[in-house]
Each structure stands twice: as structure tokens, then as C-alpha cells.
Design a protein around this nucleic acid. Structure first.
Lengths: 217, 217
DNA sequence: ATTGTTAGTGAACAGTGTTTACTTTCTGAA
DNA sequence: TTCAGAAAGTAAACACTGTTCACTAACAAT
């Protein structure tokens, strides 16, 4: 083990790697994975197409890194809400709504994060490294929150947090995908779309939480 | 207006068109839109690639037709349940579950039906021809069912059927997409995945309905 | 100073959807 | 029945794509 954890050459390499990722990010955000071509990317940063392959073994690997970074962003935002000490019901709704908002902000990223065949090969939570992945961590935040709800009696006692978390995730995923693919969803008519969307996101989150709520009395 | 609504030539043409679609269908079901290449398709049916373009103006148009036919299948299945005279709650849950089941049966079709950029250009329900499209009709079935629930007092009075239909659709869409992209979702571990999935689909549908239910008491 | 690794490149390979110019085949009217 | 015109079908090319290979230039370490 050498002392220097980063040689000058290594730092320079990381810098270029980052520059490639940054250029890719901006194209990807605008046009998605299909719009991001290695040749165009190479031209943008004044390299030959083949040069990219000295830094990434394939386009998929490059895109995977963009997706992972994006899910890190989702996780950060959700954590910010989840760790607050506001009342449970409010906190739960805010978490769900936040997930959608971040997803809606980068629709191409969100859609791509779930469209990749690499993800589709195995079960979600038995995938190697799922627990450690950003997606897995986001799932855990959700499950813990539901467990809290069950323990405090806010949610029905018979609810299995793991199972419910998957159901809730699916529901939020659905809205996120709808917005990603149909940018104006769910606005009835164009015009003040963001207000209508905000209201809808909150309605949707509310519906999902209601589905789990206990009704004493 | 001529009497003959289909000349021999025309019938022959439709036959070949159908043969192309049929060959495309089987490849598409197995490998999705990316796996379906015009050249491979042409080879399968012993035509030159260019010949396909005498019947379809583009690959997108061909795929669009596959998608529309698929959504017709969904609609048929859902209608079969929706038109039954079983108790409302049971009927509603069965409709939602059916939507998922048909989608899960042809994951590539379902994913593609929502992935196309052509869909993503406008609002869902202000798209020209949305009301007439199979997707639009499925949406109407859902909205009418929710309206029925509100009228009979099963669902909360303040619920707007149009809005709620979008929320419910998003929830079901989410699960359908999860299953489409992650074939083993939501099984925790491989083994008896279809039973686990059946149970989960019903749990999910139940959660979604519960979100709208009124609690008199 | 020399050796070996790394950065970077131009050209090619194997695909893709699509268009164009061309030939063949068939059809509908004089 | 003949004959013009439309339609069916094709080979070859265009403009792309991701990726690999052989090669050169630069740099690091012994």
C-alpha cells in the first residue's frame, strides 16, 4: 500500500473522466440515452470516439454511472425529509411527494434508471448489492417509515412493511413514469401546469398513505 | 362509393400486411422493440427490407400498430370484468388486478406502449383522439367505475373521478412497469413467483381501492 | 537512457432505419 | 386483347450507431 492515494496522473485521469461524465450528463438530461451518442459526445469534448473507451468500457457503463448519481440525488432529497421531526403523517406524505418531484425534474434520468436491461435480469431485492445501491437505500427508508407507521398504530397492524413498501413504491413509480413519459401529466389542460401537478402529486401521495391507514373507532 | 369494399388485390395486400405484423409480433413479444429489426423481420418472411416500407411507412408505425392491438387486448379483458354484476368492491379490485395481469403477460408490449416518444408529446387526455384510443377507453372505464363508487357512497364524496382515475391509473401503471422491467418483481426470493405475484397484485389493488374508500361511522 | 505502460487516434466491422433508382408484375380501361 | 399506369419487390447506397484493432506519441519508473 503506497501512501499517495492519488498520483498526478491519476488525478488528471479522474478529471477527464469527470469531464466526459459532465458533458454526457447535459446531453442525457436533454435527450435521454438514445440521444446520447459516443461520437457526438466525443466531438463535444474534442476527443476521438475511441478515446471514450479508455475511460468507460461501454456506453452502458457510462450511462449507469449517470443513473446511479441521479438516484443518489433522489435519496439525498428524500433523506432530508425523512429525518425531519415533523408529525408522522405529514412527513410520510412529504417523502413520497419529494420522490416524485425529483423524478419529474429529470424525467430522462428517471425513466432510464428503470428501463435498463441490466436491472431487469434479477429480482429487485435479491440483486447482488441491492441493499447497498442507492435504490436499495431509498427502499429501506420507505420500509422503515412504514414500519414506524405500523408500530405507532397509524397504519393497520396486519401490514407487512416490506410488502407494503413495494406496493407504495410501485404507486409512486407509476406517477413518476407517467410524468417522465408524458411531461404534462396529469394536467388537464396546458397552462399553470406546475400548480396542477403539485396539487396532483399531493393528492396521489395522500391516496397512497390512506390505503395503509388504520381506522379506529 | 364503390360496392366492392375489398378487391382481390386489396385482400392480398391486407394478408401480407397481416403476415408482417404477425411475424413482428412474435419477435416483439420475445425481444421488445430494440430486438425487432427490419432486416431480421424481412428475412423471416422472405422479403427484402425495403419491401416492408411498401406496407408501413416506418418501424415506429409498425410497432405502434402492435401496441394498439395490445391495448385492445387489455381493454377487452378489463371490460369483461367491468361489465359483470358482482358487488362493486369486488368488481373494482378485479378490474385493477386484470389490468396488471394482462400487462405482466406481455411486458415488452406494455413497456413499449408507454415508452414511445410519440405518446410523450402531449397531455394524456388532451391528445387528439385520446377519447377514441384504446388507452382512452380504458381510462373511461376506470373513471366511470370510480364515479359509481362515489355515487353509491363507497368512496369519499369529495373525490373527483377524473382526478382519482389518473391517480389510480398511475398506481397500477407503476406495478405493471415494475413487473415489465423486473420480471420477478415483487417476489422476495425466487420460487413460486407466480403465486407470490398473484397475492401481491391483489394486495396492491386492495391498497389502491382503500385509498378512496369512505369510512362512515 | 530504456523499457513498459498509458493516452489518444483513424480506420474498419457489424449493425441499425431509411431512401432511391430500377425492374417486374399485375390491373383496369380503351 | 392490348397497352398505359400503378403497384410490388429489390439491390445498393446513405447516414447513422456502438465497438474494436492496430498503431503512434507521450509519459513514468527502473
Amino acid at each position: 500500500m503506497t501512501v499517495a492515494t492519488s498520483s498526478p496522473a491519476e488525478r488528471r485521469r479522474n478529471k477527464i473522466r469527470a469531464r466526459i461524465l459532465s458533458a454526457a450528463e447535459s446531453v442525457f438530461a436533454r435527450e435521454g440515452a438514445e440521444g446520447l451518442s459516443i461520437r457526438r459526445l466525443a466531438e463535444n469534448i474534442d476527443y476521438s470516439p475511441a478515446a471514450i473507451y479508455k475511460y468507460f468500457s461501454s456506453k452502458d457503463e457510462l450511462v449507469d454511472e449517470l443513473k446511479e448519481t441521479f438516484f443518489e440525488l433522489i435519496l439525498e432529497n428524500v433523506h432530508l425529509i425523512a429525518d425531519r421531526s415533523t408529525p408522522f403523517a405529514e412527513r410520510a406524505r412529504a417523502c413520497l411527494a419529494t420522490y416524485i418531484r425529483v423524478a419529474a425534474d429529470k424525467p430522462h434520468h428517471y425513466a432510464a434508471a428503470f428501463a435498463g436491461e441490466s436491472v431487469a435480469t434479477g429480482p429487485v431485492d435479491t440483486e447482488p448489492g441491492f441493499e447497498e445501491s442507492k435504490k436499495g437505500q431509498a427502499f429501506n427508508v420507505l420500509r422503515n417509515m412504514i414500519a414506524e407507521g405500523v408500530e405507532t398504530g397509524a397504519f393497520r397492524a396486519e401490514i407487512d412493511p416490506s410488502l407494503a413498501a413495494k406496493s407504495v413504491w410501485a404507486s409512486m413509480h407509476g406517477l413518476a413514469m407517467m410524468i417522465a413519459h408524458i411531461p404534462s401529466y396529469p394536467a388537464l389542460k396546458p397552462g399553470q401546469p406546475s400548480m396542477a401537478r403539485e396539487a396532483f402529486i399531493e393528492f396521489h401521495a395522500d391516496q397512497v398513505i390512506r390505503g395503509m391507514e388504520a381506522h379506529h373507532g
